[in-house]
Design a protein around this nucleic acid. Sequence first.
DNA 1: GTCTATAGCAGGATAGAC
DNA 2: GTCTATCCTGCTATAGAC
Lengths: 215, 215
Amino acid sequence: MKSSQDVKERLLDVSERLFAQKGYDHVSIREITSKAGSNLASVNYYFGGKGRLYEEVFRQRMVPRAKRIHDFFRSRLRAQKESTPGGIIKSLAESFMKGPVGDEERELHQQLIAREHTNPTGALDIMLKEVIYPFAQEIQELIKPWFKGASKEDITLCTLSITALIIYFSFIGRIPVSAVTGRVYDEKFTDLLVDHITRFSLYGLNYLIKGKEDS
Amino acid sequence: MKSSQDVKERLLDVSERLFAQKGYDHVSIREITSKAGSNLASVNYYFGGKGRLYEEVFRQRMVPRAKRIHDFFRSRLRAQKESTPGGIIKSLAESFMKGPVGDEERELHQQLIAREHTNPTGALDIMLKEVIYPFAQEIQELIKPWFKGASKEDITLCTLSITALIIYFSFIGRIPVSAVTGRVYDEKFTDLLVDHITRFSLYGLNYLIKGKEDS
DNA sequence: GTCTATAGCAGGATAGAC
DNA sequence: GTCTATCCTGCTATAGAC
């Protein structure tokens, strides 16, 4: 039995994958509906158009998944006795790069986010408001107690730098990263990257302490 | 007098701006030719199609501009008595974020590069081979002597991390960066970012030295 | 070399039968 | 609710006049 719920869910699943793989413009309603095994008119019937379907993918798939990653990060953190900066960063990198979702799903997620960064539609705003902004606030609060003397702005920028590294290495920069290092993104390389990001960021954070000493 | 050279040049200039602003798919030959004041057929006549025009934009505009930025970096470096890691990184960030081109041109350049990262066509390969790869090699060679004990791979990853920060803060991450910091990208903020990237990276590099001491 | 007119195609959306 | 047939728009590319 395929209830109308099933059709909607399948449309969301199929279109999310296609949007991530090929980008919004390169996916046609014809392709979505044929792969979802539904009718050509179904996208318009259920969502009111291709653009609305895209938005719903963010609301019903991307946001909840991002929240799961967020929760995963929190539980990781609780598992440590004490949240040191190193522990925070490592939990962060691992949550994003090896988090609570399958490899393929994570890749879809990162790909769509990356596309929205360079081709922003309204959908990025949904993520910003629902996930990115609150998450950023939380990280800042976690880091702050360790760097009492640092300004709020410096802490914010450091937080952004850590996410920049994660986003770049986990997806946006894949092509140049592979080209320059000569490596493919297998599990071993991902582990190496998590390790690198953690250490580079951890040392980077030190400027919050030592920044004022030298000139 | 408009020689055929003029038409070609105008087509390259106009289309580069449009491709950067709207992305390849959202620019039509009609718009390009009308803004360039040339005929609808001129793109096909001179370049052999929209795709070829796009490639030529990279070959004739992006690559030379990137080489100018590269040269600017080198001259910056020579101006210092001694190339310390801090000097190298600062020159790097400044070359990209305040380099030898006007603000609008730099924004176009970064925008196109960013689009190619998430929507790769063959054009990114041109940049990789002609600019990105050789540039990355050069930076590595510059940094290497300062961190004798570090592995080649770690140095490569650090180099990539520095470029990741530059790329993220200068364009890809603009929307989240503005949202989280509450600031707009004016000259003052750009200066602050250059400063932050330099310091964060400089401290980050330290793990190349100290990495082995602590477990 | 330059231009117009048009071929040829693909896509989103919808009307209306069932 | 589901499906098909079709409309309409917008695009690239090109043929052929000038």
